[in-house]
Computed example of a mutant assay.
Amino acid sequence: MKTLIKSLALALSISILTSVTSFSEAKPIGRPVVVASYQAGIYTCVDGKLNIALDKQTGGAVDVRLKNSDGSVLYSKHLGKNESKYRTRLNLNDLPDGIYQVEITNGVETTTHNVTISTQEPETPSRLVALN
């Protein structure tokens, strides 16, 4: 009788351990429950501003970040699950020359757009015309 109870207790504890493990794998930590698909348009203006237009489905969150080449975040915006449109214009005139990244993510998919800022030095004319 003792061996029957011990084997039954062992089988019960293994089945409980297996079911707990399978439940924890079904929904991993850190993954969003609902993923929103999105479409983004990024373009620059002559006056040195970066325009970001984002349309997304409701039900999931999307994050927009502007990072420099070191990876530090210069701008961040979190769009909640009930928002569907986002438009912004970022002023890049105060940033030093370099390569920046606009990163848009919904938690599963990440889209990265590179933005290069370079200042052109004025050219001196190669020919001079004088009038007397």
Rank of each mutant, 00 (worst) to 15 (best):
P28I: 05
I104E: 01
V34S: 14
A9T: 11
L90I: 15
S37D: 10
S76K: 15
G107F: 02
A11N: 08
L66F: 06
S19C: 10
T116G: 02
T18W: 11
L128A: 08
L79Y: 02
K67L: 13
G59E: 12
V33D: 15
S76P: 03
L92R: 09
N68M: 04
G41V: 12
S19Q: 10
P96R: 03
G59I: 09
L54Y: 01
I52G: 00
L12K: 05
S37A: 12
K27E: 11
K77C: 08
K49Y: 14
V115C: 08
S37E: 10
T21Y: 06
S72I: 12
S15Q: 10
M1P: 14
Y86G: 00
A9W: 04
T3C: 05
G71L: 07
R31F: 04
T58E: 08
A40Q: 07
S76G: 12
S13C: 12
G30W: 00
G98A: 06
I99R: 03
L66A: 06
V34I: 04
V46S: 14
I29P: 06
L50M: 13
S13A: 15
V64E: 06
S22K: 06
S84Y: 01
G71D: 13
K2Y: 13
R31K: 08
S76W: 04
T110H: 02
K56A: 04
G71A: 07
P96S: 09
V35Q: 15
N93C: 10
V73W: 01
T116C: 01
E103F: 01
L74F: 15
T105N: 08
P125A: 14
